[in-house]
Write a protein that binds this DNA or RNA. Sequence first.
DNA 1: CTGTTAGCGCTTTCAA
DNA 2: TTGAAAGCGCTAACAG
Lengths: 358, 358
Amino acid sequence: MLVVLDQVAIDGVRSAQRSSGGSSLLDVARAAQVDPSTVSRVLRDDPALRVRPTTRERILAAAAELGYVPNVNARGLALRRTTTLGLIIPSTANIVYEQIIKGAEAAARQAGYVLVLAESADVGAVDSAHRELILGGRVDGLLIASGTLHESLPPPLLNGLTNCVILNRRIRGSLPSIIEDDERGMARAVEHLVGLGHTRIACLAGPDEVDTATRRLAGFKQAMRAAALPIRRGYVERASFDEAGGYEATLKLLALARQPTAIAASSIVAAIGALAACHAAGVTVPEEVSLIAFHDATIAQYLTPSLSTIWMPLFELGEMATRQLLLMIDGQEIPSVQRLEDPEPRVISRASTAPPRR
Amino acid sequence: MLVVLDQVAIDGVRSAQRSSGGSSLLDVARAAQVDPSTVSRVLRDDPALRVRPTTRERILAAAAELGYVPNVNARGLALRRTTTLGLIIPSTANIVYEQIIKGAEAAARQAGYVLVLAESADVGAVDSAHRELILGGRVDGLLIASGTLHESLPPPLLNGLTNCVILNRRIRGSLPSIIEDDERGMARAVEHLVGLGHTRIACLAGPDEVDTATRRLAGFKQAMRAAALPIRRGYVERASFDEAGGYEATLKLLALARQPTAIAASSIVAAIGALAACHAAGVTVPEEVSLIAFHDATIAQYLTPSLSTIWMPLFELGEMATRQLLLMIDGQEIPSVQRLEDPEPRVISRASTAPPRR
DNA sequence: CTGTTAGCGCTTTCAA
DNA sequence: TTGAAAGCGCTAACAG
């Protein structure tokens, strides 16, 4: 195939101009001695095309020889879409997002899309991301899993946005969202503790303004009511979803006159802080206090004691949100709030939960 | 400014065609009654341009009114560059990458670039990412922090690649890399342990084929030699850089006839596994065994006991790599291997290290 | 100081 | 079964 290479060389001056040294569709066309449009059709397997096999061969060979890679900018410009989706997360450091990312990536890849990640914890994220990424033509749609979004987000921010779906936040306005069944997950945690015989159960709740925190707390309250158990004074502590938040809040719970015998934490990261607080306060887990955390992650089984958790279908959440987004991009109507109910939340019981001491 | 809006409405048919409902430079030009090229110049602050203030005003007002956002595809096509950089990491879940990402992001943003993240642990990552991302025109350059890269990577893979820099891996071939001083970091860990009086020090080393693991082990050996301490049989365990790897390897170390009194782990994630293994084996930390880990992270202070670590300049690594990449994109020659020496590695001493028991 | 023009690489009618 | 031509939105000479 030196012939082909030679042609490239002859035309080198022009090809060398290209973005990054690659060869263009035009180069392939010349090498295969056909019109660029034919190359385009062959390379994209245009169904409305019956091309002579030998021509197709020539084209494919030339493309392979030249290491042709289509330029997404040119294609995006012509098609008015990039096959790229964006996923906005508040922090790459948070283990909870790992599974969501994997699920979204899988669904995107399956549909022939590329997924790019953007990090932003900002409340204004939706709006500016929409500007920068969608209007800017970088992505066709946006998955938004940013943490601080909540119902009281200024409505004007969300006006006229399209091709966005929110993950696990309910936001007043027109943007559809996919949410996991946090109420049920938290209820499972309570049921697990009740099943072990606990009655003095406290809740390490998340920040007031975070929708998931609200829903988990609601699940806690429902389950306590269902078990006919009182929620004692001071038994609900609101704290940020990080180690420090869990630590401080737990110290407060442990300082109560009537200490809880079990704590249900709405976040695994906060639970890690809670565990540290128990150790620091000289309170043994699970002997004196049982601890269970919302969301599972690898680290749970490597803590001491290993941490009981509520597994949630995060991978599936990422997948489902992506599929909905693709439908939306496709111009279809999608429901404004969808709850993911299928793989149900389930308790992964490890060493941090046990019956209360007599 | 209803006038402007009216004009848009009149021209709505055409503007509506645009990628995602936004308005184009042409729309702005019409609204401001000037030529598109003038709009382009004004909006990009073309230095070689002295425009009449009133014209500029009109243009800026029109752009604001229309919510104009430039289309990156069109711009990328015209300029043959995208002002976007890619960062390839093996896993978003690994806490070690958090700081690298932040550093790269900061440096990219400062230069007016956008950073996108791609997840790939694959050895072929460099090659396929170069194809997909650089040749495809998605990004102008690539930061590669993929974990399994190593010196024995098939050289042909790296041929002709450009605008890539490798983070913290030395790779035979032409790709420049920025590395942190892992030898020194690990030496600091050993010195810390020696300073506490330890002599039976083991090393939880990383996988053979990972360059950073090799360098950290080298640092361990040098420091042991410098302290005139022997490395006993079985005192170097190679394990994967994850909790499970650290767990298993530590069990082996603890099963040795002559148990080490201290363990230097080449990875904080492996160290979490090591801590779990000590607890499981009933070995107290730091009383019976001291433990120190390479790389610091928030979780270190929330483990029990809190984990002593070696802080490494990861943020700066991300920053520096990005700056080098930008130089490379700019056509400048950059050194093939650069070692980041400035913020020095330092020991963060917490509760997991203490003098050995008498 | 501003308009004209050509083109970036690809897709897509419309012709042949 | 293939080619010609126009256009996606923006930039960059080159004129005026």
